[in-house]
Write a protein that binds this DNA or RNA. Structure first.
Length: 916
DNA sequence: GATCCGACAATCC
DNA sequence: GGATTGTCGGATC
């Protein structure tokens, strides 16, 4: 990667502090890492690469810069440049116009405008980051201070690590504690908690340059910070230590070893101290700091930190909205406002997977803001001149975090947040609590959230006063069933108790279960988490939700499926939901994202496990169709390390080597090939003799490769299949006849999952499901809107893609009844769809079913088929998907009830488990 | 013997 | 490089 962001910020600060009109653009280019040679030649005016004329500077694909006299309309100038021929011809990204008082810039790719005064320009450094090769943000905060601070701390950490042995966990813990204490001191000396620069200048003037006594300095400093102002021990300390105040709050309480410093580390320490730490944001800085320090997280800088907008999706419906509504109701009523203040001082916020404390910090700040509004309102309502102080304490905030460093950062960040809010309070009301000594810290425990009793961390039963409330929130980790460690698997087993149900659930569902148990029967306790959307889709639903609903807990609000977003460069690729839990009755809030990307809110009686309003139905998977005698199967899975599969070239090579091979090669379709009209082949060696195989050395070599791949596998099933390496690991391919082919995963943009009618000369891989023995009638029904609506409702998803499954979609689908005449009608219309597809031989199914490209005649043919299939269910047309689903769900329930009546179930149905 | 999933993974412009 | 869109095989019953 190019130049570091911290360097850009520093250079920009210099370039903008007192801009020299002749030099500014060159400093600017230098800041963003343009080569020195380019800059020198531009300055000398002899560069043929300057595409601009006059005094302007223009660099192909990069920027176009123009300076104008003061008083010029910068926006108009920028707009005309933007539209100019020279800019479009040279594919310019940024247009910049300035009179050295203000600056207007336009990013032509992102179509964003920047208007700023010159002395604020450095704060907008991120706008121009694409010039340095950072497309969008790597991970930047709105405040450059966070980026600089975390990078510097990361470097300091590296230097400390070089000198100090960190092999034992207690060493690492000691360093974690040291770094958070150091961070506090940096912050303190820039924000008036200490005297300005007090610590840094003491280091500079009293420690030796080789850094050898820096550790002793910190030992003494931390001792004095833990001594009360009047403590006699202070007398024996050196004078410059005695000037430091008593901090308390537990931050400097324990004696922890201090790492040794060298010359370089000491210098960097002083550099850090000379930075301005007053502007760092505890909410984002915590995650960044953690990401820089934590070995594991360095590779995926902040992939999983929760953005403020996502945190707000959790805490607004969870408690903030209610509290603000209370304020609105109480505006004129002094007594009620005082009650609200009291309520704010008695509620508890608990994040049982708190990381470096994002949720707690945002929640804290938001509650303090609300409290300020309440106090402001009280001041206008009441006649007395009472002085209201903030009553919200950090001890109302609880957290559990498994990572030691993150948990230290969380504690510290809460203090910093408290201090910042105190300053905001002082600014508004002119008075505030004293900065020091620090009050109680948040109750952040380092431990495993799934093993600790939450009641002990946040004991609502004992400390609970009347009307006190607990709000649980957070973003616990997601881990699918085949990506967990055995420890994590054990934790889930202990938690879920019974034999199997936990194995297919995501790790995050553990937090849902624990929260539900904690909530059960308590009307003043609510929880809300971010979770992977898969806990509300497909197979997980019947395992998880009946247990939660069985505890009397329901979904009080939800944000349905949306793509994970944050500012990290490698942000995690996952779709998420936000789910609120509680026992209260009343309307539920359901937030849905429209196709245009706009959130809308709906009030509904109940929200079901699929995060849809209304019907509380849960669809169980089944191994046989509910009312159909034709079964759907998996396609054939090679499990071959690629050795039985052939690209067209490989196929041709094999056959030209030995024409006999042609007998053993069949075309194979994955979903990719089926949907996009690509070609792929496979060795289908069913029935080949040893002798025949020996005649084909290249084929035999491939077969032997399959054997070793399967032997090397961790899966016992694959090991077993090494005995028959010439065969597919799982082969369902019919020897003769036709079959229907349904791709297992396909794009959610399509109105219909494209289904094919194939014959047995073509193999289908396990990327598809197949229905042998099915005909055009079955094709017609499965292709209908009716069936696709069912699929959309009950199928699992890959992120947001459709994931068709036999057990969840096909086997649960209630087929319509049809007499001969009706069957014939469907067959005709289905045939029409198949024929129309053939009218476009050069368009793949992927194109034919792209909503933007779907040919009108094909669309019409589908519509006609849709109507005919609907008619099999009822004469009156359905209004919309909701009505179709209501009908299908009713039919489903009826069929399930009939089935139960016929043969009383031996086993309990999957979902219903006692929660004892 | 069957089948679901992936804080994904590969491909396509 | 970001938008699009479906592989592959382990793990589990």
């Amino acid at each position: 990667m190019a130049i570091s962001q911290a360097r850009i910020i520093e250079s920009m600060e210099q370039a903008c502090s007192n801009p020299n009109p002749d030099e500014f653009i060159f400093s600017f280019l230098d800041a963003y890492g343009f080569p020195k040679s380019t800059i020198t030649r531009l300055r000398n005016g002899d560069d043929s690469r300057n595409v601009a004329s006059g005094n302007d500077i223009g660099l192909k694909k990069k920027l176009y810069f123009r300076s104008v006299p003061e008083g010029t309309d910068l926006n108009a100038e920028a707009d005309s440049l933007k539209a100019s021929e020279v800019v479009s011809r040279n594919d310019i990204r940024f247009v910049i116009v300035t009179d050295f008082k203000s600056l207007v810039a336009f990013d032509l790719k992102a179509e964003e405008r920047l208007e700023t005064s010159m002395d604020e320009l450095d704060k907008q450094y991120a706008f121009f980051l694409p010039l340095a090769g950072y497309e969008k943000a790597v991970m930047y905060s709105e405040h450059p201070a966070d980026v600089k601070a975390s990078e510097k701390m990361g470097r300091l950490f590296d230097l400390i690590r070089e000198r100090n042995d960190l092999s034992k966990p207690e060493d690492i813990h000691a360093l974690n504690v040291f770094l958070t204490r150091l961070l506090f001191c940096f912050y303190a000396e820039d924000t008036g908690i200490f005297d300005q620069g007090q610590m840094t200048s003491a280091i500079q003037s009293t420690t030796s340059e080789d850094g050898s006594d820096v550790d002793q300095f910190f030992t003494d400093l931390f001792t004095v910070l833990n001594l009360e102002d009047k403590a006699p021990e202070r007398e024996s300390m050196a004078a410059h230590f005695q000037k430091f105040p008593y901090v308390n709050g537990g931050l400097f309480e324990k004696d922890e070893p201090i790492p040794e410093f060298g010359r370089k580390a000491r210098r960097l320490l002083i550099d850090c101290g000379n930075m301005d730490w007053s502007e760092i944001n505890p909410d984002i800085f915590g995650s960044m700091f953690q990401a820089v320090i934590d070995e594991e997280q360095r590779g995926n800088l902040g992939q999983h930190y929760t953005s403020v907008s996502n945190i707000m999706k959790v805490i607004q419906p969870l408690f903030l909205d209610k509290l603000y509504a209370e304020l609105e109701k109480s505006r004129e009523n002094e007594r009620k406002l005082k009650e609200l203040l009291l309520r704010l001082q008695n509620l508890h916020i608990f994040d049982p997977a708190c990381g470096s404390g994002n949720f707690l910090i945002i929640a804290y700040k938001e509650l303090r803001k609300l409290e300020m509004e309440v106090i402001d309102t009280l001041n206008t309502v009441s006649d007395q001149t009472e002085m209201y102080y903030s009553g919200i304490k950090l001890s109302q905030f609880y957290g559990i975090e498994i990572d030691d460093f993150a948990h230290e950062v969380a504690i510290l960040s809460l203090w910093l947040a408290e201090h910042q809010m105190n300053m905001a309070f002082k600014e508004k009301f002119g008075y505030a609590d004293a900065d020091l000594p620090l009050r109680d810290s948040g109750n952040i425990i380092c431990g495993n959230s799934l093993k600790i009793d939450w009641q002990e961390v946040c004991p609502f039963l004992c400390s609970r006063k009347i009307d006190s409330e607990v709000y649980i929130c957070g973003n616990p980790p997601f881990l699918g069933y085949n990506s967990r460690s055995s420890e994590q698997q054990d934790e889930m087993r202990l938690l879920f108790g019974d034999k199997q149900s936990y194995k297919k659930l995501d790790y995050v569902s553990s937090w849902f279960l624990l929260a539900s148990k904690y909530i059960a029967n308590n009307e003043s306790i609510f929880a809300a988490f971010v979770a992977t959307s898969s806990i509300c889709q497909g197979m997980q639903v019947p395992f998880l939700w009946p247990r939660i609903f069985g505890l009397g807990v329901n979904i009080s609000f939800a944000y349905s499926n949306f793509a994970w977003e944050n500012a990290a460069r490698n942000k995690a690729a996952v779709n998420v939901v936000v789910i609120g839990l509680g026992v209260s009755k009343g309307k539920k809030r359901l937030f849905c994202l429209s196709k245009e990307g706009v959130w809308s809110e709906e009030l509904t009686e109940s929200i079901n496990a699929y995060l849809v309003g209304g019907s509380s139905i849960i669809v169980n998977n089944r191994s046989k169709p509910i009312n159909k005698n034709i079964e759907m199967q998996y396609g054939s899975m090679p499990n071959d390390g690629g050795n039985l599969l052939l690209s067209p070239t490989e196929k041709n090579d094999l056959i030209s080597e030995d024409p006999e091979t042609a007998h053993w090669v069949k075309p194979i379709l994955g979903a990719q090939e089926f949907l996009n009209g690509k070609k792929r082949y496979c060795l289908w060696l069913k029935g080949i003799t040893e002798e025949e195989l020996n005649q084909l050395p290249s084929v035999k070599a491939r077969v032997e490769n399959v054997r070793s791949v399967r032997l090397a596998s961790k899966s016992p099933g694959a090991n077993k299949a090494a005995a028959t390496p010439h065969l597919f690991w799982f082969a369902s391919h019919p020897d003769k006849g036709t079959y229907l082919l349904v791709p297992k995963v396909s794009s959610e943009r399509r109105p219909y999952v494209p289904i094919g009618l194939l014959d047995s000369s073509t193999v289908s891989s396990d990327a598809n499901l197949i229905v042998p023995n099915a005909g055009v009638f079955e094709f017609g029904v499965l292709t209908s809107e009716m069936h696709n609506d069912w699929m959309r409702a009950v199928a699992g998803r890959l992120e947001s893609r459709y994931r068709y499954s036999a057990t969840l979609v096909y086997n649960t689908f209630p087929w319509p009844e049809a007499n001969d005449q009706q069957r014939k009608k469907i067959e005709e219309l289905a045939e029409e769809v198949l024929l129309l597809r053939e009218d476009y031989p050069d368009k793949s199914l992927s194109k034919l079913y792209d909503p933007k490209e779907m040919p009108e005649p094909l669309r019409e043919a589908h519509k006609a088929l849709d109507r005919a299939v609907e008619k099999l269910y009822r004469e009156k047309p359905f209004r919309d998907a909701t009505e179709r689903l209501e009908h299908l769900f009713a039919l489903y329930e009826k069929l399930i009830a009939e089935e139960k009546a016929k043969k009383p179930a031996k086993k309990q149905p999957k979902g219903v488990i006692d929660n004892g």
